[in-house]
């Protein structure tokens, strides 16, 4: 039963992820992406990682995707015209896919089979606590974040600062730009419009 659900949700995730790329309509793509995220959340559930599953739904399927949809609506993307790939692209892509398939096949056929060994038991946590309960408690995430992963956590804070400064730099309206020989704000806006 467990296996059945695993394959079901895996197939759902992969298929909808494929549809995200293949859909010509941006809104459809975004909606398929939500389904893909929900599929991933279900996989987390099967692994007993309830906290991660909820986060996946709340953060990705909820907040991030709403933002995506907002942007799509704001930009008012029309149905993009179907781009026909030229011959060179098709040939190059086919060669790449064949090479990739050959490489993977070769590796899996010659490499020794790792899946044949039986799964070992979940390692015991010292102190006799239930290991799964220990690993998936949201408190465990908090402890990890503020002890072992303190440094990456702080660096991630600066990552967000960089992103914030970047948004301001790239979208701030410039003032005092009418000196001789320099592009005026009007020209800047025009170049931005022609870019998008």
């Amino acid at each position: 039963m467990h296996d059945f659900f695993f394959y079901l949700f895996s197939a759902l995730t992969v298929l909808t992820a494929l549809l995200v790329v293949l859909c010509p309509n941006a809104v459809n793509s975004a909606v398929f992406m939500i389904v893909s995220f929900v599929g991933t959340a279900a996989l987390f559930l099967l692994l007993d990682a309830f906290f991660l599953a909820i986060l996946q739904v709340l953060v990705y399927a909820g907040a991030v995707m709403v933002l995506f949809l907002f942007i799509i609506m704001l930009l008012d993307v029309e149905r993009s015209s179907r781009v026909r790939p030229d011959v060179v692209t098709v040939v190059a892509a086919s060669v790449a896919v064949l090479l990739l398939a050959f490489g993977m096949g070769y590796l899996f056929l010659t490499g020794h089979d790792a899946t044949a060994a039986t799964m070992a038991a979940v390692p015991q946590v010292p102190g006799g606590a239930n290991p799964m309960e220990y690993a998936t408690a949201s408190r465990a995430f908090g402890y990890g974040l503020f002890t072992k992963y303190m440094l990456p956590f702080q660096v991630a804070g600066f990552l967000l600062l960089v992103a914030m400064v970047g948004v301001i730099v790239l979208s701030k309206r410039l003032t005092g730009s009418n000196e001789a020989g320099k592009p005026s704000a009007q020209e800047i806006r025009e170049s931005e419009v022609s870019q998008s």
């Binding site: 102190g127 606590a129 220990y134 408690a137 408190r139 465990a140 402890y143 002890t147 072992k148």
Partner: peptide
Amino acid sequence: NHSELLTQLSEQY
């Protein structure tokens, strides 16, 4: 001992 264990581990980190 759940939380004790976590505290112990985290102090080490």
